[in-house]
């Protein structure tokens, strides 16, 4: 079926099979491979994108469901080679090692910080509860979020 979707501000029109996942559409059809696919069961959060501004797992959504909607991916965060404040904080705080989970964390936390500009430590941990990271032990990710909202230490 014909689907029109806006991804990172750019409109796309495609004829898609209904069973195509949004994650596969982004990665294969649009070549936006920053969205990673981990468990494909809605557990790990690596494939998190913003769907009309809200965090969603793109592996638990059909591309046809995005018809007429706006999708944001990690490729849309940095502006002309300048990292977003959250991305910069991730780099400063060493909030990534292998980096596989990082795009999902960045998308979840981008929405979270927009809605909760000054979160407490428990709120930060709850916010990232839907994203798994097997390298960092989360400590540096929590610290990066604190830095991104202007707190030097958590």
């Amino acid at each position: 079926m014909i689907v029109e979707v806006e991804v990172n501000g750019k409109r796309h029109r495609r004829d898609l099979e209904p069973r195509l996942l949004l994650s596969d559409f982004l990665r294969q059809d649009l070549q936006l491979t920053g969205t990673h696919v981990g468990c494909e069961h809605g557990v790990c959060g690596a494939c998190t994108v913003l769907f009309d501004g809200e965090p969603a797992r793109s592996c638990l959504m059909l591309a046809v469901q995005a018809d007429g909607h706006k999708v944001g991916t990690v490729e849309g965060l940095a502006v002309v080679n300048a990292l977003s404040p959250l991305q910069a904080a991730f780099r400063e705080a060493h909030a990534l090692q292998c980096g596989f989970c990082t795009p999902g964390f960045l998308m979840t936390l981008t929405a979270f910080l927009r809605d909760t500009p000054n979160p407490g430590p428990l709120e930060i941990r709850e916010a990232l509860s839907g994203n798994l990271c097997r390298c960092t032990g989360y400590q540096h990710i929590v610290e990066a979020v604190s830095r991104a909202c202007g707190h030097p230490r958590p």
């Binding site: 769907f51 969603a56 959504m61 929405a111």
Partner: peptide, 9 residues
């Protein structure tokens, strides 16, 4: 319920 992603969708 679940995680922020699940609660938003």
């Amino acid at each position: 319920v679940g995680s922020p992603q699940i609660r938003h969708q």
